[in-house]
Nucleic acid binder design. Sequence first.
DNA 1: ATATTTACAGACCGGTTGTCCGGTTTTAAA
DNA 2: TTTAAAACCGGACAACCGGTCTGTAAATAT
Lengths: 190, 190
Amino acid sequence: MAKRTNDPEGLRRRVLDVAAEAFQRQGYHATGMHDLMRQAGVTGGALYHHFPTKKALGLAVIAERVAPQVQETWIDPVLAAPSTAAGIRAVLADIIAGLDARGAVSGCPLNNLALELSLSDIDFRAEIQAVFARWRGALAGKLRAEGRQDAEALAAFVVAAYSGAMAMAKADQTSDALAVCAGQFDALLG
Amino acid sequence: MAKRTNDPEGLRRRVLDVAAEAFQRQGYHATGMHDLMRQAGVTGGALYHHFPTKKALGLAVIAERVAPQVQETWIDPVLAAPSTAAGIRAVLADIIAGLDARGAVSGCPLNNLALELSLSDIDFRAEIQAVFARWRGALAGKLRAEGRQDAEALAAFVVAAYSGAMAMAKADQTSDALAVCAGQFDALLG
DNA sequence: ATATTTACAGACCGGTTGTCCGGTTTTAAA
DNA sequence: TTTAAAACCGGACAACCGGTCTGTAAATAT
């Protein structure tokens, strides 16, 4: 029996980090629990102790990794910007710069999991739907405060177009689709 | 040994139909070969004779089922319409009506497979990218013929927004996102 | 110091995965 | 009629899947 240091929070964090990365890169079903154990340097007993099932781990990844990522990369910057249009422009510019710097496009984590899981499992769907709703809601709130009467529709459209553009970008491994998206948003939101 | 009737084309067609449906409903990795055999009423030997690997089957599904579906539900109707804007409007109206009638949203088959496979396998990515390119190209061609100078960008944006709207629709099992999308397209394309 | 709970180790299980192969039947060619 | 190729059967395969178990070390309460 090897030495060991108890560190529940750290271990849990490590597992979530590895799982979030793997789910985004390879997908949920393509990622095995044993892969995660190996990558995170965690044994089966420890993993099972924190996440009783793979589904529980998946839900935790969405709630504690994907949702905060949407919050930090999209919602917060847009809300902090002088205008919604400027915020969206800045967010897209940041994302495009990041993609070009890394030279690879792994897609929007929310959308990846959404398309893979939302149909087959109702709990996943609920969690994913909630993230989408908060995302749209935040944009719509700011748009409404700026006097737009079609705020909800505009917000939904922006989120949809971004998600789809990211999917296309993933397929052809270029940020072009996002750049196009940014240009159209400028024309649309003034 | 049971009686048997040789019917290569029919068997191949049946397998592709079942696989296309299963891949869309459950995803590629979540669908097992044995499930497909059972659903299609086909033995392992027969399946292996026509598709040496699961990947080969997946590629065939994209080339012979998903791509034609994009062609028939999107490209052909738009090209046949009096104007691109009218064509897109009609296509979206049809899709929304179909979704509402079925009461379930299983998402855009191209996008489903794109997000699940394009990152992990280069052959899948190439096939998917080609379908996206043909889709955008067809819309762009018609837009350019109508005198639009930002035809390529507009076409890419339409495809992206539709794909993303379908993803959101899948997450909340409502055609609302697509309706929003249709409305914005009207404003955008006049 | 003792008892209890929490955190982790690591082997293990039944089921499923994609794949493959030896044999048989059907079909077409010679 | 003989021969060969294509189509199909049905099951076995090793690897792997997610999940479970027993046991032990560490932390915490008593």
